[in-house]
């Protein structure tokens, strides 16, 4: 047998390769089963990154369904409330190039907003209550409704169903307690008040 293999170098190489392939395949297969890493399912991780406004602007009925959709291969740039920051973190997680926000699904808003019901105009129709994805509106039929501001995600979904248009989306006012220092401008902009940097000139061109 060995003699035969030595006599046929081509065959012996083939045998060697095949046996190597089989051995390593077996080892790898065993490792894959035995040392399987039980991570968070990707949907959980994606869901944790999404802003949980449950606004449905992405076209899915909530953040979790969208997370599921991303896991199934949908685009990751459909979330205006999360904005570019969320897209970037998701891109990081999935290890893909971060696209810009798909404007079709809405624009990223600078300020956070909460719904506010003009209570003297509310007719108590409960439509907004049914529309609210996070149960942040209190009220009963024929009773005035009100928004629990701390629970409101600013998703906008209650505005449209209101028959008397008594819901406003008000920007969240900043107070002393949530005030923070802003980041200083980069040194070369502070240096001489020139705005030209590589980035801005690139954007202008």
């Amino acid at each position: 047998m060995i003699q035969f293999l030595l006599d046929n170098p081509f065959l012996s190489a083939l045998v060697a390769l095949v046996s190597l392939a089989v051995t390593f395949g077996a080892v790898l297969g065993y490792a894959a089963v035995q040392f399987k890493v039980e991570g968070d399912p990707i949907v959980e991780q994606l869901d944790a990154l999404l802003p949980q406004t449950q606004c449905g602007q992405c076209g899915y009925p909530g953040c979790r369904p969208y997370a599921q959709a991303i896991a199934d291969g949908d685009a990751i740039n459909k979330c205006p409330p999360g904005g570019q920051a969320t897209i970037n973190t998701i891109a990081d997680l999935l290890d893909v190039e971060a696209p810009t926000l798909d404007e079709e699904h809405g624009e990223e808003s600078e300020v956070k907003k909460v719904a506010y019901i003009r209570e003297d105009e509310c007719i108590g129709c409960t439509k907004c209550i049914q529309a609210c994805p996070v149960d942040a509106i209190l009220g009963a039929a024929k009773q005035m409704h009100t928004v629990i501001a701390s629970e409101c995600t600013g998703c906008d979904l209650c505005v449209e169903p209101c028959p008397v248009d008594c819901i406003d989306m008000l920007p969240v006012e900043s107070t002393v307690s949530d005030w923070k220092w802003h980041k200083p401008e980069p040194y070369y902009q502070r240096a001489s008040n020139i705005i030209a940097s590589d980035k801005t000139s690139g954007a202008a061109a």
Binding site: Y188, A191, S192, I194, A196, S197, D198, S201
Partner: peptide, 8 residues
């Protein structure tokens, strides 16, 4: 070339 303040 980089349009930075030279003297600074």
């Amino acid at each position: 070339l980089r349009r930075r303040p030279v003297m600074f």
